[in-house]
Design a binder for these strands. Structure first.
Length: 586
RNA sequence: CGGGGCGUAGCGCAGUUUGGUUAGCGCGCGUGAAUUGGGAUCACGAGGUCCCCGGUUCAAAUCCGGGCGCCCCGACCA
């Protein structure tokens, strides 16, 4: 479909709205793609909606190709369903909750594991109906504490979510792999430069999961990547190998340090307080964090300037861990929170796990398990014993890659897709079963797979723009070509109209800027919107019967094309641009 | 939820400290002129519950109290 700009809902903003911080937010507002209705709630104007429909179509084609079936589930879910899975409370304030006239509670769906599992348990009764993958594309609601960056983190947004059901592990693996491939194809077709990383499952639950990330300075996620072997993981998940010299370090007995000494540290609890009080670096402290894992108390030791990654501790112990409550800590250490230390804990049956980095420390500071006191000159292997060294803290740039001898770099990124193996996380609590070939009732093995449709739009803008505006990949640009007549009436306009008609005939989605504006205004708007192929009808028509055809991304290298060959040239550019996106898919 | 900032025309802002004409400027918008290769120019014009409610005062955009909304940082979060 093509359009005359004078007829389209299009008002570009010359100045940047004060509310927009991120470049994608600014450009989408300025180029008349979105308007805000409330914090994190946006109207998609004609340009945005055209792009979104293209993204939706690409995703839909790839889901269909992978054998998934499209459905559409309600936005509004009864509370009971979420209470059944335990997520009515677990999801917390992120759920948009509302009541009907009878006072019955509902929520606006932030994701659809509950309704889909309910659907499956009603309809899928036999292994003969498996495997099956159902997906939908629709609006999701999450009452984010802090919406941000326009479409990047909205409270109402468009998402594609798919759910697979399999009879066994192998089937689930196959479904997961099929989605991984479908995602790779879809994102390539959208022109997104992405990386696939290992991640933590978060509130969705389940076992293995992968995130599709686009590296961007403004991204909210941190990922670590090995430049040598390509290992990549979300910071929540990233492992690191033991630092160089670790094996030697733990063989030393650490008995040669200065004598252990107790010092008074009245009211000094935090790492910052203690280190400044004692005038030492935070890296000379060891934090002793008390956790409860399935009733068992565990002490985790990390360097004062490091941050414990609970998920790692959980993984090492093979159990879910929760930070011990104040009462538990006081009971164990006989001291208030803030003065816990490792000395004497082993005698109380507490397991001590220390981060690799502790192995290299000597004469360090720990809590004394006594109010207002710390030990200085503490040495492990002499003053207390460590049961296990492990990778406990968040990885950082410069850490060693866990898969090879390379080094990790840390990057900011935007998450555009996430795929999960759920196993029986939902089928079990919701009693969703089928009868298998052996006549036994079994829980479905599920997977779930999300793509942030509206986030893709803002992500593209975030990573593909210049000082003048957006640079769209052709696959998701609102239009393919943009005709700019330098004058708004007369012979040039007639030529422009002729080209407009020619382009429509050959199936190019075209904008013609038929507004009575000065050329400068038209050029600015054309670059701002960022349609990939630009056709400028100017004085070269009069001089030699040629118009200028160029690419938005490379404006400085125009081609001059006779008027009657423009359609052919644009068609061939279009084909070329599509092929660049995904040559192996054609 | 903690910290910070903001709320005056569609957008960007001044005016608020020290209350006092008819609330201003730029852009945009409308009409007209002229113009048409990178947000030129001129003339005329329209457009405001100064976020809301209450209070103080002869007088409130301005002072006081309460509320709401928005943005940023943090915490949290597919």
């Amino acid at each position: 479909m093509s359009v005359r700009l004078s007829q389209m809902l299009f008002v570009s903003l010359r100045e940047v709205p004060a509310e927009a911080e991120l470049i994608s937010h600014q450009l989408l507002l300025r180029a008349c793609f979105i308007r805000k209705l409330a914090a994190g709630v946006y109207t998609y104007l004609p340009l945005a909606w055209r792009s979104l429909l293209k993204i939706i179509n690409i995703v839909r084609e790839e889901m269909n190709r992978a054998g998934a079936q499209e459905v559409l589930m309600p936005f509004m879910h009864p509370a009971e369903l979420w209470q059944e899975s335990g997520r009515w409370d677990e999801y917390g304030d992120l759920l948009m909750k509302l009541q009907d006239r009878q006072g019955r509670w509902f929520c606006l769906g932030p994701t659809h594991e509950e309704p889909i599992t309910d659907l499956a348990r009603q309809i899928i009764k036999s292994y003969r109906q498996l495997p099956i993958n159902l997906y939908q594309i629709g609006t999701k609601f999450r009452d984010e504490l802090r919406p941000r960056g326009g479409l990047i983190r909205a409270r109402e947004f468009i998402m594609k979510d798919a759910y697979s059901f399999d009879r066994d592990e192998e089937g689930m693996e196959r479904s997961f792999e099929a989605m991984r491939q479908a995602y790779i194809r879809a994102f390539k077709r959208c022109g997104l430069p992405f990386v696939i990383v290992e991640a933590e499952a978060g509130a969705i639950g389940g076992t293995e999961n992968l995130e599709f990330m686009v590296i961007a300075e403004s991204g909210e996620d941190r990922l670590l990547r090995c430049s040598k072997c390509g290992y990549a993981a979300n910071r929540e998940r990233a492992e690191r190998r033991p630092p160089a010299g670790f094996e030697e370090a733990i063989r030393e007995t650490k008995r040669n340090g200065k004598p252990l000494q107790k010092v008074l540290t009245p009211n000094q609890r935090t790492v910052d307080e203690v280190s400044s009080f004692l005038n030492v670096q935070p890296s000379q402290l060891v934090k002793t964090l008390i956790y409860v894992a399935d009733g068992e108390i565990v002490a985790a030791l990390v360097r004062g300037d490091h941050e414990l990654n609970e998920a790692k501790l959980s993984r090492i112990l093979g159990k879910k861990v929760v930070m011990a409550e104040a009462a538990t800590i006081e009971n164990l250490t006989n001291a208030p929170v803030g003065f816990s230390g490792p000395i004497g804990l082993k005698e109380k049956g507490v397991k001590l796990i220390a981060d690799y980095d502790i192995a290299f420390m000597s004469d360090f500071v720990v809590g004394a398990n006594e109010a207002d006191a710390h030990f200085i000159n503490t040495n492990w292997g002499r003053d207390f014993y460590i049961d296990q060294f492990a990778d406990l803290r968040f990885a950082d740039k410069g850490d060693g890659c866990p898969r090879c001898d390379g080094t990790l770099e840390m990057l900011n990124a935007i998450e555009i897709g996430h795929i999960f193996k759920l196993g029986t996380r939902y089928s079990e609590p919701m009693r969703a079963t089928f009868v298998d070939e052996d006549g036994k009732e079994k829980f479905f093995l599920m997977g779930c797979y999300g793509i942030g449709i509206s986030r893709i739009l803002s992500t593209i803008v975030e990573v593909s723009h210049d000082e003048d505006g957006i640079i769209f990949p052709i696959s998701i640009a609102p239009f393919e070509a943009w005709i700019l007549p330098v004058e708004s009436e007369g012979d040039l306009m007639e030529v422009a109209e002729q080209i407009y008609s020619d382009l429509q005939t050959v199936g190019i989605e075209t904008v013609i800027d038929d507004r009575d504006e000065r050329a400068g205004v038209k050029f600015k708007d054309m670059d701002l919107v960022g349609v990939p192929i630009q056709v400028i009808v100017g004085r070269t028509v009069r001089e030699r019967g040629e118009v200028e055809v160029r690419l938005r991304r490379n404006r400085s290298e125009p081609k001059y094309v006779p008027v009657n060959q423009v359609a052919e040239t644009v068609s061939s550019l279009k084909r070329q641009l599509f092929e660049e996106l995904s040559p192996e898919l054609r």
